[in-house]
Design a protein around this nucleic acid. Structure first.
Lengths: 240, 240
DNA sequence: AAATATTACTTGTACGTACAAGTTGGAATG
DNA sequence: CATTCCAACTTGTACGTACAAGTAATATTT
């Protein structure tokens, strides 16, 4: 199992090997990786190299290191600076329900997207789906999502892992979120949005336009979100 | 000049030494640090150690490394995930003007702060100041700021470096922003806010509550911002 | 004079070694 | 039996060496 292309950049090869095993659940969340010396013996490398690989996984948020114990696999994405509804994905305080209101289908790019599409994206059709997030039975976030059909292909919305598109990307396609750009606006709700969020037309809502960059070259995810923040504010935290 | 407390954690000592020289402008922004071998000779260490130190400075956003050239000092805080008005601090597209509307003074904590204060903060008085950010002559952001008097002391708002509180902390007090937590809400403008932002009462504005964590133990900065996003949206980006 | 090659730098990767520091479970002790 | 101690693990720090890869200015060649 060990010998693939170990030419140069050994640490990258090993980093990607470990990453893949984490993504596919062979190193489950909460478990400890084999020790550094284990990896050294297995792959015929030195600790310098495996430590470099683990350091990258640490930076990317796949593991944490505990001196004297080992390297523990963690759930990625919490420490990622993503905007989340207070409670969502923390999911302790509130009951969150995700409803697909428009199943994924092939469509044309919506001009509402305020980011500049790449040439490849403009030439390609896109996949679109719409979701609503409910908290305690009340709709709070209306989500429109797009991505380039050519870059990924159509993923059926009823195949989402735990109802999460990001988890689906990670577990089934080994694609990770690498970053995002966002624009935030406060504006009055349109009739359409007000209807879907069950609020009054003209009530202030938070409009978020976001572009997620992924580890797959050429694949970006575009989002257009409408949030009713009157009960549940949007949260965002980042560190170091 | 080299021998201070080199007992253990040499790389931390050297990291902090370099960091301090960056903060105080002895390694100016845009310049290149001495080469790794230079540092090795100067401090009597090996490249392993200096590289570890530089790696931390890289993670913290003080430098970037360029193979074959060297380590370049960069302006920190851009890659920091902070919410910024589109254009602010990029400051290329728009003319941004910061006006202190309430000079810093000793005050009591405002109950509007939605974060839990530490015991030390509750026992201490606080320093408060208010600012307005203008873009092209139009007020766009109204800012209320607090921090614990005991943790830092009163900094006069007319001593701010470039009008920036963060720059003042870094250059004059060697304190850096380590992270933040934010809550975002869309709501109608109150009379007071509407007046200061020169908009209609009830117009939708973006309300941001933020707690910045700093490198100085016990010091947090609390912000309460009201943004008129009708012309200039708020931006936020983070990577890896 | 222009294109090419060399040289002297820089950072990047990887080898190997040694010991410090933290954790854990079992052996020795009381 | 409870406590202490120790041995065997883990990761953390630091030493030293070697060569690869990228950059830029200089020397050489054309």
């Amino acid at each position: 199992m060990g010998d693939k292309k170990l030419e140069k950049h050994k640490y990258r090869t090993i980093r990607d090997y470990i990453k893949k095993r984490i993504q596919t659940g062979k190193y489950p969340i909460g478990s400890y990786l084999p020790s550094e010396n284990d990896f050294c013996n297995r792959f015929g490398i030195t600790r310098t190299t495996i430590r470099k690989a683990l350091d990258e996984l640490l930076k990317e948020g796949f593991i944490v290191k505990e001196q004297g114990k080992g390297s523990k696999v963690i759930e990625r994405g919490k420490s990622l600076g993503l905007l989340t509804v207070k409670g969502i994905s923390g999911s302790i305080d509130y009951e969150v329900e995700t409803i697909v209101t428009e199943p994924s289908r092939i469509a044309r790019w919506d001009p509402i997207i305020p980011f500049t599409l790449t040439n490849e994206e403009q030439k390609s059709q896109c996949v679109y789906f719409q979701r609503v997030r409910n908290i305690n039975g009340h709709p709070v976030v209306l989500e429109n999502n797009w991505y380039s059909l050519n870059a990924l292909g159509l993923i059926e919305s009823d195949e989402f892992v735990d109802g999460s598109f990001f988890k689906t990307l990670s577990r089934k396609h080994l694609i990770e979120i690498m970053g995002a750009e966002q624009e935030l606006r406060s504006k009055p709700a349109s009739i359409d949005v007000a209807k879907k969020l069950n609020i009054l037309e003209g009530a202030p809502i938070l409009h978020i336009s976001v572009r997620f960059r992924t580890s797959k070259p050429g694949l970006n995810l575009y989002g257009d979100l409408y949030c009713d923040t009157s009960e549940y504010p949007i949260r965002n935290s980042y560190f170091l």
